[in-house]
Amino acid sequence: MNLSRFNIFCLIVIPVACLFAFCVAPLGVAAASSFFTDQGDFSLQTYWKILADEEYRSTLWATLVISVVVTAIAAPFGFLIAYYNVMVVKSKLARRLIYMAVILPLFTSNIVRAFGFMVLLGRNGIVNNTLMWLGAVETPVRFLYSDVAVVIGLSYIFVPFMVLSIASALQGIDRSLLQASSDLGGGPWTTFRRVVLPLSLPGVLAGSIIVFTLSVSAFVTPSVMLGGRGKVMSMIIYEQYVSFMNFPFGAALAITLMFTAFVVVALYSYVFERKLAWSRA
């Protein structure tokens, strides 16, 4: 279809304007506010304050560590489901059912899923009741209100992202490559190790980046899983904005978080870059 320049302009002017007005501009304003003191002078003092404070540093560190662990758990879990659904399952119905089971959690709110874990892991929850019924423990184990609970909760929430990303990569593998590997003497395990796995890595990489980035800024699940006994960066940012109304400080915290996350992702991509040179060739 031939669209004239005028047509194109009409089509994109409002969407672009919206994005600028409600995304770019607010972010710009927020970011800018973090670089100015109350008196209106340009200064980085807010950032120094954050970096100098032991509490903020340790929260930032904890947030990053949690996110790395969550990514490390979600990846193989998601890989298993993706591999199984794309390469092993033959029945179309089963494949659709599995996709539905994976996508259904995505359509429920974070809070609902976190609540589900409260029910599962709480003092009176299924896990504890089963353990006590089995006689494995005598008093309920405290699963909730810890970093571990956050990791469990977040990895559950992000597995679907991994599954979709990896499934997409696996789907794109030319089936004749598997036959070629077999033809050349590669048994099932070798074919997996030397053909399927390497070719799925772009999907693993993309999925990991998505999961890590979402993890780092997750708010609902950590709030609920920690139950007040600890904080992650997103909770501190929320506090600054909503409780203290200290917008510039909140903005500075947000930028610090995004920047460190960006550095981690960039490093990770760089390391992977060499292994994935072939996909860029």
Partner: peptide, 21 residues
């Protein structure tokens, strides 16, 4: 006898070269 154990080799129609190698 599975394919990977047969003493035959195939040249595939679309070549099936491993793109990552």
């Amino acid at each position: 006898v599975p394919a990977h154990k047969r003493p035959v080799n195939t040249v595939f129609q679309n070549y099936a070269l491993f793109p990552h190698m």
